[in-house]
Computed example of a mutant assay.
Amino acid sequence: MSRFHLHSEQHLVSRIGWLRAAVLGANDGIVSTASLIIGVAAASAGRSEVLVAGTAGLVAGAMSMAAGEYVSVSSQADTEAADLDREKRELEANPEAELAELATIYERRGLSPSLARQVATELSQEDALAAHTRDELGIIDHSIARPVQAALTSAITFTVGAALPLALVAIIPVARLVPAVAIASLIFLGVLGAIGARAGGAPIARATLRVTFWGALAMAATAGIGSLVGAVV
């Protein structure tokens, strides 16, 4: 009996599609809504005005994230489809040139000319389009554009992220709202950074520092603008 056995592996890179959209959506939800709440509260608005502004920001932001992700990822999908269609036509029109092109790719990766030709020939006999899609175009399964998945993931995670600072408006006294939302949102961002890093196998400390730094900068800017506008008005 062989001492070796095959086993399946779940690589972290396979999560890149939905993870990017999820982290982006949640991060934007926390930062944009918290910044909006802080800016409106800093302008000396009452609780009801802050709630209305925050709720409007949540709804508008979720819809904007969904639409933006769908449009941008659809553009990627259209480009991939166009490249695949062109590759199909080239394979039908000149299969020998495409085979030579594939062999050249394998040579550049370190195979000898004879072995590169053999590998290209066998892969082309199995599924020529799949071989060119993967090795010439660089399109692999976990990187394929999925517009609906990206849109739904971003909208849902944005809503969850935005709901966290918005919930504080209902329970924190208005006089303490700005520092409370700022501190809580930085904690939320730190947790998000850690979760995202953990899911993606990245260094947790660096990811946490990155999201909290930019979140703090955004909230500080909107608080300053809110205070300025409130003083002028």
Results as ranks from 00 to 15, higher is better:
Gly29Lys: 00
Gly29Glu: 02
Gly29Pro: 04
Gly29Asn: 08
Ile30Gly: 05
Ile30Asp: 05
Ile30Gln: 02
Ile30Arg: 02
Ile30Phe: 13
Val31Asp: 09
Val31Gly: 07
Val31Trp: 01
Val31Arg: 08
Val31Pro: 06
Val31Ala: 11
Ser32His: 03
Ser32Tyr: 00
Ser32Val: 02
Thr33Arg: 03
Thr33Pro: 12
Ala34Val: 10
Ala34Lys: 03
Ala34Leu: 11
Ser35Val: 10
Ser35His: 06
Ser35Leu: 09
Ser35Glu: 10
Ser35Phe: 06
Ser35Gly: 15
Leu36Arg: 05
Leu36Tyr: 06
Leu36Trp: 04
Leu36Gly: 05
Ile38Val: 15
Ile38Met: 11
Ile38Asn: 07
Ile38Ala: 09
Ile38Pro: 05
Gly39Asp: 05
Gly39Met: 05
Gly39Ser: 11
Gly39Thr: 06
Gly39Leu: 07
Gly39Val: 08
Gly39Ala: 11
Val40Glu: 01
Val40Gln: 02
Val40Asp: 07
Val40Asn: 07
Val40Thr: 13
Ala41Val: 10
Ala41Met: 11
Ala41Asp: 06
Ala41Ile: 11
Ala41His: 06
Ala41Gln: 07
Ala41Cys: 13
Ala42His: 01
Ala42Ser: 15
Ala43Leu: 08
Ala43Ser: 12
Ala43Lys: 02
Ala43Asp: 04
Ala43Phe: 04
Ser44Thr: 13
Ser44His: 09
Ser44Val: 13
Ser44Met: 07
Ser44Cys: 10
Ala45Asp: 07
Ala45Leu: 12
Ala45Thr: 11
Ala45Lys: 10
Ala45Glu: 09
Ala45Pro: 12
Gly46Ile: 10
Gly46Pro: 07
Gly46Trp: 07
Gly46Arg: 06
Gly46Asn: 14
Arg47Met: 15
Arg47Thr: 15
Arg47Ile: 15
Arg47Gln: 15
Arg47Asn: 13
Ser48Tyr: 10
Ser48Met: 14
Ser48Lys: 12
Ser48Trp: 11
Glu49Cys: 13
Glu49Phe: 11
Glu49Gln: 15
Glu49Lys: 12
Val50Pro: 10
Val50Thr: 12
Leu51Asp: 13
Leu51Gln: 14
Leu51Ser: 14
Leu51Val: 14
Leu51Arg: 11
Leu51Phe: 11
Leu51Gly: 14
Leu51Lys: 10
Val52Arg: 13
Val52Thr: 15
Ala53Ile: 09
Ala53Lys: 00
Gly54Trp: 00
Thr55Tyr: 04
Thr55Phe: 14
Thr55Lys: 03
Thr55Met: 14
Thr55Gln: 11
Thr55Trp: 13
Thr55Glu: 04
Thr55Ser: 14
Ala56Cys: 14
Ala56Gly: 15
Ala56Asp: 08
Ala56Met: 08
Ala56His: 08
Ala56Gln: 05
Ala56Pro: 04
Gly57Met: 04
Gly57Phe: 02
Gly57Val: 03
Gly57Thr: 05
Leu58Pro: 01
Leu58Glu: 06
Leu58Ile: 08
Val59Asp: 11
Val59Glu: 07
Val59Lys: 03
Val59Thr: 09
Val59Cys: 12
Val59Met: 12
Ala60Phe: 06
Ala60Thr: 09
Gly61Glu: 00
Gly61Tyr: 02
Gly61Asp: 03
Ala62Arg: 00
Ala62Leu: 02
Ala62Asp: 03
Ala62Asn: 03
Ala62His: 06
Ala62Pro: 00
Met63Cys: 15
Met63Gln: 08
Met63Glu: 04
Met63Pro: 02
Ser64Asp: 05
Met65Pro: 01
Met65Arg: 02
